[in-house]
Design a binder for these strands. Structure first.
Length: 289
DNA sequence: GTCCAGGGAATCA
DNA sequence: TGATTCCATGGA
């Protein structure tokens, strides 16, 4: 395949570390020269900052490389406007947005996002990345580029004959059966991903996602927010978000006793349709800073 | 050895 | 509905 290149010139909202290390994705890795290399669909791409521009180099089936990048990096959305609006909410939002000002929420493949966030349950990011890498290396397609080997995320069909024991060997732990069941449900059409992508009703899509094994409220919200379903109004609540919301607004002594519904209500009232973005700025800020 | 990680499912009131 | 407990694994 022919190598392609695209130069994104002086984007207002775009920072490699903010985008790839804010916890939304697991298949981008920092290189020694500060660039990031990653894979999505059949695309293997390296992104390097040069001055105020970003140089995308890699292999892509779509001859329109720019279009592919535009879609994945959500480049049609005006993040400056979003940040301005959220910054007005209070000083904490202003601070967290300043910290993660280069974040963009990627449009990731729905199937891959479902599996990735099932794996994320009660897990940590380095280990999640390792499991996904082993899963891809074992069952995905190999792509060679620049003297290195990369592996696509396996399709439901490619996982057809995988046993629970084989998942366990990849280090999935108790999530093995969840992956097995959910993959089966998607493959046999119990949950139709195309229908989900075409359904504008977020409540209905969420309920359908919740029928999948290993998908509870938090994972469902991550799928809605981080996949190409792109529901920016959902507010995934994990241990970090609960922590930061309690520290800033609720101030309960024991944060583990904070009611989830209370957090949801507060988030909706405060951030409205942009709750998902607010969540991401707060999460990134609280975890990194 | 102990605690923790981008939680979910089973169980019980 | 709401609260508790268990679930593999690996790093700190």
């Amino acid at each position: 395949m022919q190598e392609q290149q695209y130069i994104l010139k002086k984007p207002e909202t775009f920072d490699l570390k903010d985008i790839f290390e804010c916890g939304q994705c697991f298949r981008w890795n920092k290189q020694e020269n500060g660039s990031y290399t990653g894979i999505w669909k059949e695309n293997v791409v390296n992104i390097k900052k040069e001055g105020q521009n970003y140089v995308f180099t890699g292999i892509c089936k779509n001859e329109n490389f720019e279009e592919e990048i535009q879609k994945y990096f959500d480049l049609d959305r005006n993040y400056e406007q979003i940040k301005n609006e959220l910054s007005k909410k209070d000083k904490y939002m202003k601070t967290s947005i300043q910290y993660g000002k280069g974040i963009r929420i990627l449009n990731q493949d729905l199937w891959e996002t479902i599996i990735s966030f099932i794996i994320s349950a009660n897990n940590n990011i380095p280990r999640i990345k390792g499991i996904i890498e082993r899963l891809s290396k074992t069952y995905g397609n190999k792509i060679e580029w620049n003297g290195e080997e990369y592996y696509t995320f396996p399709t439901p069909e490619q996982l057809k004959n995988v046993t629970i024991e084989e998942y366990r060997k990849l280090g999935l732990g108790f999530r093995d059966i969840r992956l097995y069941e959910t993959t089966k449900m998607i493959r046999n059409g119990e949950v139709n991903l195309k229908e989900l992508e075409e359904n504008p009703n977020t409540i209905e899509v969420r309920e359908k996602l919740l029928t999948l094994s290993g998908v509870g409220p938090k994972v469902a919200d991550c799928i809605l927010l981080f996949s190409d379903l792109k529901r920016l109004e959902v507010f995934p609540i994990d241990v970090w978000v609960r922590r930061v919301m309690n520290d800033l607004y609720i101030k309960e002594e024991d944060e583990t006793k904070v009611n989830k519904k209370q957090i949801e209500k507060l988030a909706k009232a405060k951030f409205g349709d942009l709750a998902g973005l607010a969540q991401q700025y707060l999460f990134y800020w609280r975890r990194e800073a």
